[in-house]
Design a protein around this nucleic acid. Structure first.
Lengths: 147, 147
DNA sequence: AAAAATGGTCAAGTAGGTTGACTAGTTCGG
DNA sequence: CCGAACTAGTCAACCTACTTGACCATTTTT
């Protein structure tokens, strides 16, 4: 595989990722929530349960200070609460409020809308295969907010 | 396709894109160049020929002021020169210096290294198919430096 | 029980964008 | 062919989202 082919793949990958993020965010805003793009990815981690600030930092690939600031913002906007952690008095357990859950669902729906469109474009089975391959390439890597 | 599947695809896509950018940048640094991640993508546009600041801004999906600042930096570091534009006295034609070309080649090699590794992981033909599908999904969209 | 590591926050600094205002040159409508 | 509207580029000021560094309270290690 020549260099030019590698480059073209790189471009396509980054353009697709950028469009996905943009459209998820648009979709969330259209559903009546305010929020930066990173919100959705923070929500899914918090929704999974048992999340702390440090977990979130690892998930997003940023420092724990940055994650803490993000959580501040989410708390201020009423999406998340900090609770005492049952097994570690240093840590705080992050939990979604009702509005946080609603925002999370909105993000999921927006993502599903985009993916549905792509599915129509390249074929459902092909898209599924694409997902499987991407998962093999980068299984649970961080979802960095920028590059 | 359910929401959870769409989410998993989204995660995989973003994690993969993030890893690609990180590793291209590491590869370029390892080859002796300094530079932010956005450099490589600016270089490929400038290398293509006929680029102006506005073109670059469109390519990167940022304002022309931001693109101009990036070009300042590239000029200061000796990668790019601003030349008078042959057909428009307002515009400046961006051209790579010899060192700029070397950096561009380094970025291409680094990208090729990563893609080669992925190729071994999922199969060359599969990866090629993946590239084709991504190109259908997001043909020449901007390569945004962040989300 | 002392030492080292970890979870979290506060504070300050910074990179890399943004918006707004402006100049110089170009294109368009009458 | 000339004034109005537009476009390329830059300067300046600002802002957002991240970083580094210092610190305290807890937990884990030895």
């Amino acid at each position: 595989m020549q260099n030019s082919e590698a480059l073209s793949l790189s471009f396509a990958l980054l353009a697709t990722a950028g469009e996905l993020v943009r459209r998820i965010n648009d979709g969330v805003v259209a559903r009546g929530f305010e929020g930066r793009s990173a919100y959705g990815f923070a929500f899914t981690r918090i929704a999974a349960g048992g999340a702390t600030v440090s977990d979130l930092a690892g998930h997003l690939g940023v420092t724990k200070q940055a994650a803490s600031q993000l959580v501040d913002e989410l708390v201020r906007k009423g999406y998340v609460e900090r609770r005492p952690h049952p097994r570690d008095a240093r840590a705080r357990l992050l939990v979604l409020t009702e509005r946080g859950w609603a925002n999370t669902r909105a993000a999921e729906e927006a993502a599903a809308d985009v993916v549905r469109e792509w599915s129509a474009l390249v074929g459902e089975e092909e898209l599924r295969a694409l997902g499987r391959q991407l998962l093999r390439i980068a299984p649970n890597g961080p979802i960095r907010p920028s590059w």
